[in-house]
Design a protein around this nucleic acid. Structure first.
Lengths: 341, 341
DNA sequence: TGTTCTACCGTAAACGTTTACGAGAACACA
DNA sequence: TGTGTTCTCGTAAACGTTTACGGTAGAACA
């Protein structure tokens, strides 16, 4: 069924070595011979067997992205990831690499899945997302010397891997600044586990900004929930029952905001009217919500492209000129003012 | 760095053949020898090289899911897919198979990407989603004899592949029935391209039900948009400008409903109050929207598991007992009544 | 004519597995 | 003693590539 390099060689009456060289564009093959090989490859519908190729070369020409399940969140924060993956894949494809997305079983934090990819050498490098403050995956990969890059920062590991992150701290701070400048002083924060690094960063910015404005941080105005609609919904009432109600609330992301707004609505509190709402990570959902939610929009697709570039530059096999290795970048989160604050 | 089967053999002073047999649980190896091999594998941190294995066996032990980009929709309808993929991956993992998700470049309808996967034999089978009425991918795969399964039906290809679909026709019909029973007679439909088979099915049910109730289908109440927030938003006003306004609207899915409701809000029309709203494919978003949207909830994760099972049963290499091959299933879409209708 | 160089190509090994085949040893049985 | 059986293991080929190495033919040059 599938034609191999041997079939081509037999068909053309030349050796497999020559066929391979012709296909791979090596110099030491006659121009006419090369053309004949290329033609034959086309007519015989030849395409190289990836297993054979990667066995010989020791490289799979593919990059794995670990799709991270999160306890309590069946949805993986995917409106966030898909545009990122689009950019990632586009840039990788330019260099002839495939992107494979590896799904983990929910709840195991990918350790098992990651091991599998690494140990069976299914990919030449991996891309991690939703980095945690102390991320065992990073430790594991650095220890094994397996190439990787991360979307998000972490305290773990050396500094010898490419990472790209958003400036959640500044966004948290900017959100507070904006609300304070509009007269708010009781500002709630609905956040995920602080274990997730972006949650930690968001809250750092939030706290710093409050202190800067001479506002005491009130633990009663801070609540932790899963990063999805249910999380925001469950947690919002607790904050609103604070003896001194907040007049504004910052949500970590759109899904939590949606759930939170639902809870508010059920309490008869109108977002954007009775309470100001800002979300840190904006997605299309925010724009079409009523009221449209003010948020910080990440440039996800360019980020995907960029991280791919950084990763590629860090791989010896695909690296460009030496010294072009970029290690860490933090991208701004741009405020999109809408109706909710 | 990576230890091979040869390292094990050398370390234990036995042949690689024996090592391989011990590892693969074959019968013709002494119990004690097997134990020694297993121990050595553990201490030397051995795990089999996937490339070598699949080269030899002609099977990659992995299934590819083609993540379908849709023109105008950067988001791939992913809240829909992720739970499905979770189920798919869980069932595949049970049989020791990996799930790899292949991203296509947006806009190319995956033909290029699919070819790549098939021709380089990166996976043993593929799973297609968002099947079109006439789906060239299905034609391509059947023609090449490459195993696959589909989430969704199609007119294309033979009937010799496993497929699992939701009963969109019944849901469309049920939605109309429900609305009519509540006194509505002018019922709008916001749908995607009819080329997408689920859009076609939805509309078939919609039309049939209307006719059954003696209601004429008004083309002015039907509008086509991209399957995302922007699509619903752009298209909704046109329908509302119909000379005889609809009193109810059925959206294909949550994202379109969100956009549509935004447009309604801007026109001063309150969903669930001034106009009834039902969505065909329900996701968590519907539940937490205000008003909570009535919709039809698919059992996505079980569907993923089921389709994996069907696919596995159809593969000679992994098949269970003969005759257990299930070919096509259509699952019900269960109505979840909420506030919007 | 003899030597050297270049262009092109064939040979064969190697990557890490699995597996068909056969061999040796131990044992049973006649 | 001869034959057959069973258990265990080693040998070597094969999967489809890539690539180091060497060889041949012709051209160039003295």
């Amino acid at each position: 069924m599938a034609s191999s390099i041997h079939d081509l060689a037999r068909h053309l009456n030349i050796s497999i070595g020559t066929v391979s060289r012709a296909l791979n564009g090596r110099a030491d093959v006659n121009a006419e011979t090369r053309q004949r090989v290329l033609d034959a490859a086309r007519t015989l519908n030849y395409s190289p067997n990836q297993s054979g190729r990667s066995l010989r070369q020791g490289a799979t020409r593919s990059i794995a992205f670990m799709l991270q399940p999160h306890p309590g969140d069946q949805q993986y924060g995917e409106p966030f990831f898909i545009p990122f993956l689009t950019g990632l894949q586009a840039r990788l494809a330019e260099s002839g690499l495939d992107l494979i997305v590896v799904m983990g079983a929910p709840g195991d934090y990918q350790q098992e899945r990651l091991r599998r990819v690494v140990e069976t050498r299914r990919a030449d490098a991996v891309v991690l997302a939703w980095t945690r403050r102390d991320d065992e995956r990073i430790d594991y990969l650095t220890e094994r010397g397996f190439p990787f890059a991360t979307l998000g920062r972490s305290r773990s590991g050396g500094k010898s891997y490419p990472s790209l992150d958003l400036d959640f701290e500044k966004a948290g701070s900017d959100a507070v600044d904006r609300l304070v400048s509009r007269g708010h002083r009781r500002i709630a924060a609905i956040r995920p586990s602080l274990d997730l690094n972006f949650g930690h960063l968001f809250m750092t910015g939030y706290r710093k900004a409050l202190r800067r404005h001479g506002i005491e941080v009130d633990p009663g105005l801070i609540a932790e929930g899963f990063i999805n609609e249910a999380g925001g919904y469950q947690v919002m009432p607790r904050v609103m029952l604070s003896k001194d109600r907040p007049t504004a609330v910052i949500f970590n992301n759109d899904a939590m905001a949606l759930g939170g707004c639902k809870a508010l609505a059920e309490m008869g509190i109108r977002p954007g009217h009775d309470i100001a709402v800002i979300v840190i990570v904006d997605t299309p959902l925010c724009r079409y919500f009523s009221p449209a939610l003010t948020g910080f929009r990440p440039a996800l697709e360019p980020m995907g492209q960029r991280l791919a570039e950084m990763l590629l530059a860090s791989l010896p096999a695909y690296a460009g000129p030496e010294g072009t290795r970029i290690m860490r970048e933090v991208w701004p989160l741009e405020l999109v003012a809408r109706e909710s604050d």
